[in-house]
């Protein structure tokens, strides 16, 4: 009888004790992940994008990437040849500039919808958004039998998202994501991103990301080549004038 009375009490304290710990862990794990991903002050790389259609047709794109912090990012496209010289510049406050050499003048583009595909890839502008995951999503830790990885469930903090949740498989040893499963607003699993990490100097970085659109059957592979970190890029490297050079 005594034990029977004791069980709910123990359970209550256990649950009371567990919940905040789990939440705190989830938050800190996501922060670790964010920190890892945004650890370098700046980076310069060649980004190779391989787009594979459902029927097996392949297209490639290549761009020179320069990034400083989270908010300053410049892509200068080198491939395909017809689009060589086309550049985009992202600046703080969701501002994006586009320069097409044939037009001489740069134009400011405002992307009001983040669900659109990023330059024809399987990534959306929401996926490529520079804001941290912590800013965009509320995490919770999910039970996992995997001894090497955590499972985090990310739920968008606002309703203005393409996703209802993202399930992140996070490497316990290094805190980098190795897999992200995307669920649409109706809760259907429809995109999968897998990451391969490499270490350059003191930084871990996603050397290769493969995004598969499970509904369309297409995929996009992004490979970071010739990457270098902390080159001391100044803010004035990220100006419209520089983009046009």
């Amino acid at each position: 009888m005594k034990y029977q009375n004791l069980i709910p009490t123990v359970l209550f304290f256990l649950l009371l004790n567990c919940s905040p710990v789990t939440a705190q862990n989830a938050d800190s794990l996501l922060k670790y992940m964010d920190n890892l991903m945004s650890a370098p002050k700046d980076k310069v790389a060649t980004m190779q994008m391989t787009l594979t259609e459902k029927d097996g047709k392949v297209k490639t794109k290549e761009a020179l990437l320069k990034q400083k912090g989270k908010d300053r990012k410049m892509y200068k496209y080198t491939k395909p040849e017809s689009q060589a010289g086309v550049s985009t510049l992202s600046l703080p406050g969701d501002v994006m500039w586009l320069f097409m050499p044939a037009f001489d003048e740069p134009v400011k583009i405002t992307f009001l919808s983040k669900s659109q595909a990023f330059t024809g890839t399987d990534f959306s502008y929401e996926d490529m958004d520079s804001r941290s995951y912590t800013e965009k999503y509320a995490p919770s830790l999910k039970p996992s039998a995997d001894p090497e990885n955590y499972t985090l469930e990310l739920v968008p903090r606002t309703k203005k998202s393409n996703y209802s949740k993202i399930i992140v498989t996070l490497n316990k040893a290094n805190n980098y994501p190795i897999k992200m499963e995307y669920f649409d607003t109706k809760g259907t699993y429809f995109k999968l991103a897998t990451y391969q990490y490499a270490k350059k100097g003191k930084y871990w970085y996603a050397k290769e990301v493969l995004m598969k659109d499970l509904k369309k059957g297409s995929s996009t592979k992004i490979v970071m080549a010739e990457i270098s970190f902390d080159q001391g890029l100044k803010d004035d490297e990220f100006t419209v004038k520089k983009m046009m050079e």
Partner: peptide
């Protein structure tokens, strides 16, 4: 050339 570069905005649509 202008048309080819405008294609940048249409790609993947």
């Amino acid at each position: 050339e202008k048309i080819e570069q405008l294609w940048f905005l249409l790609d993947g649509n």
